[in-house]
């Protein structure tokens, strides 16, 4: 199997599909995460499926699954858009639940609020109907590796 660093470089140079990187992360496969690339913009998708249901009578998505999806989206975002060669470590993750997560596909987008040499502050927003009505917003700090390029 290719080294993760090689796969990241191939994704960034267009030689490999972004999905190949996501599929290398067992937890991302477990949640069934997909990525849509439009130019440089990345939208992450958590397709609705039984394994991410929390309350079965509503039915609603599990808040923990949505949080895990958003954290994973931010990690993939850092790897693909910032050329970080290693999986960054999550320092902290803070999420606000604004609306119920219904049993439907969920989307997420990320933006880097502040990029330091060692630490990245990332904002993540997740929505279902439209991105102006997020169901959850989150911010997280990630520890970057010492040999990370920040282009």
């Amino acid at each position: 199997m290719k080294a993760l660093k090689t796969l990241i470089e191939e994704c960034r140079s267009g030689k490999a599909d972004y999905q190949a990187l996501i599929d290398r992360v067992p937890y991302a496969r477990f949640l069934g995460i997909q990525v849509i690339a439009q130019g440089d913009e990345l939208t992450f998708v958590l397709p609705k499926h039984d394994n991410v249901v929390g309350n079965p009578t509503l039915p609603a998505l599990h808040g923990g699954a949505v949080a895990g999806f958003m954290e994973q989206a931010a990690i993939i975002f850092i790897l693909l858009q910032m050329g970080e060669p290693k999986v960054p470590k999550t320092i902290d993750f803070t999420i606000d639940y604004l609306r119920a997560g219904l049993f439907r596909d969920t989307y997420a987008e990320c933006s880097v609020t502040r990029l330091g040499r060692r630490i990245a502050n990332v904002h993540i927003s997740a929505w279902q109907k439209n991105r102006q009505e997020p169901i959850t917003i989150a911010r997280a700090h990630f520890l970057l590796s010492d040999d990370g390029a920040t282009d």
């Binding site: 992360v25 067992p26 923990g64 949080a67 954290e71």
Partner: peptide, 11 residues
């Protein structure tokens, strides 16, 4: 283990 799985357990 992924932080998201740990988060889901804690939630």
């Amino acid at each position: 283990m992924h932080g998201g799985a740990i988060f889901a357990m804690m939630d």
